[in-house]
Design a protein around this nucleic acid. Structure first.
Lengths: 190, 190
DNA sequence: CACCGTCCGTACGCCACCGTACGGAATGAC
DNA sequence: GTCATTCCGTACGGTGGCGTACGGACGGTG
């Protein structure tokens, strides 16, 4: 557990974990140091201040949960299949999505910006897949928001009342029922 | 602004407001006292400690956003119309739903419990309306979770990326598109 | 082994907030 | 007006986290 010397990346990883569990407040230098079996001396060697760690953690999360996910699906040509893989992948992911956990910490500028960027990229990705599927731009956008909202909502309920929105089996079924709503183009009035 | 003496309820109101803006961390005695134009002396007369205020604020919110909402719809006999009024009512509500803001503070037992109770009651209410509408129990439950999840998701996106999920007009349209998905009983496999 | 750059431990001062103690102002009862 | 009760101001000690200073351990290079 202890013993080895730490790299900057070790702090970032720990920060992301803390972030996912208890939000921005958990990204605290001294508690994290204790958790890593080291001291503040280590931290302030690798980072200028607490803010720098938070920024790095957010950036790390932002990258892993947008770009990397997209890259993993890059070689699936069928948009419908791509969406299916996406939904199943993210619902299978254990742990709580930071987008849900951090929604209360929008007072912090870095957090607010990261959350906005992530939401926009995610919606844009789904929107593009829906457009590839033949939906008109406006309709694709509306449905992308609905789809992403459904995902966020499920995750949020899972975190606050797990028995209502279990993980695993039930989550996969939920994802499928969402996908079932897609193909038929039911027009919605502006 | 200042001047008058404060009642316990004044503190609770201020706490709920703070809670809705920046979460549990914002329910801090000294900052709230400053905001109310008074001092800690007042606070510790009305409350045993910070925890007591938090509990009162949560209880207040919990009541206002479950029981009171339900009561307001009690005299609408048609379940479909009741759901419609419910959705339009809650989407019209300005400000962010505490259920979204507090999702990151589940480390706190009181918060966790309150969030779980609220989610359960809200889902149960929708579920009952759907059952009254003729859906089988299991199906009503599933759809109630979907519906509540969609609401939460929209609220969450609104808080983190407002341009994707605007309030007012667009929210009402969103609510209507949700309701449009209801009547046709499309069976989902268990 | 001597040296230098990298990394960590420890001690310190600072600030924000919690909770307590207690004196005193404001208010209503009579 | 007196008096008791209700409510508030202020001063204090305690705690936890931030950031700095600095001494020294570690590890590679010659």
């Amino acid at each position: 557990m202890a013993g080895k010397r730490l790299a900057r990346a070790d702090w970032v990883r720990a920060a992301v974990t803390a972030l996912a569990e208890r939000g921005v407040a958990a990204v605290a230098v001294e508690p994290l140091a204790a958790r890593l079996g080291t001291t503040k001396g280590s931290f302030y060697w690798h980072f200028a201040d607490r803010e720098a760690l938070l920024a790095a953690a957010l950036e790390n999360w932002e990258h892993e949960h947008t770009d990397d996910v997209v890259a993993a699906l890059a070689d699936i040509t069928d948009p419908a299949q791509r969406l299916r893989s996406l939904l199943h992948g993210i619902f299978a992911l254990g742990g709580d999505d930071l987008a849900v956990v951090l929604a209360g910490d929008t007072g912090h500028p870095l957090v607010r910006a990261a959350l906005a960027r992530v939401a926009e990229r995610r919606v844009a990705y789904v929107e593009r897949a829906l457009a590839d599927l033949g939906l008109a731009d406006a309709e694709a956008h509306r449905r992308a928001v609905v789809l992403y909202g459904a995902y966020i909502g499920y995750q949020q309920i899972h975190r606050t009342a797990p028995e209502l929105a279990p993980a695993g089996q039930a989550a996969a079924a939920f994802a499928d029922s969402l996908l079932a709503l897609l193909p038929p183009t039911a027009g919605t009035p502006g």
